[in-house]
Simulated scan of single mutants.
Amino acid sequence: MQLFLPIADIPVNVFLILALGAAVGFVSGMFGIGGGFLMTPLLIFIGISPAVAVASVPSHMAASSFSGALAYWRRRAIDPMMAAILGCGGIIGTATGVWLFALLRSLGQLDLIIALSYVVLLTVVGSLMFWEGTRAILRLKSKTTTLTRRARAQGWILSMPLKMRFKRSKMYLSVIPVVGIGLFIGFLGAIMGVGGSFLLIPIMIYVLRIPTGTVIGTAMVLTLFTMVFATLLHAITDQLVDAVLALVLMVGGVMGAQFGTRAGQRIRGEHLRLLLGLLILSVGIRFAVELVIQPTDLFSIGELRAGQ
């Protein structure tokens, strides 16, 4: 069954899009992450232009983050002040990312930058997560323990000015790194179409040392803020948000997430990190292969703008 996507301007198999949404929803439910780092590349791999994929996925991410954030809010597992300060940085970063997105698109370099960004980010993050997961499994098998270095790594952050108290997280730290992290995650979301939870959660735990009880819910609130804002900006400035594509992805994602959550509860945390690292690394490698292989069609037809 073919479905025409008005903004992407191509027909696609509706069952394929549903399957992609369900697969990414399954992964999101299993690992507790947004899944945008998988959704955007998969859409690009099936022929949707990188610009439309990056602009359309945030609406799917916003919908999934809203339901998750609402559940964590009811459980009082969100730090409102932390989320607000992260959101301030995230909005600035998102606006900057959308501006750079439009600039690169006007220069004709957007597709290349998106591909290179995914290659670098996913290969580095995937390799680190795979290595950390492997070490954790080996430590369990050898029944050895290692001392954590989290406290030592926090000295430079604890010495920063402009400190404030975050009551829900029971933290007293500077707002500077909090705003900076939000800015970084918002910028990535606008340029790459990712929610950034797979980066934000480890940063909040291992860099800011925020208790894990409030990390996931607070990260979901930031994802909700940045993805809604990115969707609005992309729709207004670039007119690249394909609502039909986003709606079908949402339906598939909701179905897949239910099964993924149940599967994730049956797997050990160390194995989950290892599997997630492999998954992220494989997508990064696929992007790298796409950059170096020769395309079957060496020429393309595009609209010629005035002055070109």
Rank of each mutant, 00 (worst) to 15 (best):
G264P: 07
I181V: 15
L222F: 07
A62L: 11
T134H: 12
K170I: 09
S64W: 01
V119A: 04
V289K: 06
V178C: 04
I46C: 03
G193R: 09
A306M: 04
R135A: 13
Q265A: 11
P161N: 06
L107Q: 14
G260R: 01
G213N: 15
G196H: 03
S174I: 06
I10M: 09
S64A: 05
S67V: 12
V178L: 02
L5Y: 08
Q239E: 14
V27P: 00
F225Q: 10
M204Y: 10
A306S: 13
A230K: 04
L5Q: 07
L121R: 03
L116N: 07
G35F: 05
A102K: 14
N13K: 14
T40W: 01
G34D: 02
R209N: 14
A243V: 06
L291F: 05
R262M: 11
K143M: 12
E270S: 13
G87R: 04
G89D: 06
S65K: 05
L200H: 03
V57R: 00
W73I: 13
S64H: 08
G36D: 01
G93A: 08
L274I: 08
E303P: 07
L86W: 00
M81S: 10
W156E: 14
L272I: 10
Q294V: 09
D111R: 02
T223H: 01
Q294H: 13
S142H: 13
A243G: 05
G97E: 04
F101S: 12
L103K: 11
A136T: 06
L116E: 01
S142T: 12
T144G: 03
K163H: 07
P58E: 03
L107D: 14
A153R: 10
L173H: 09
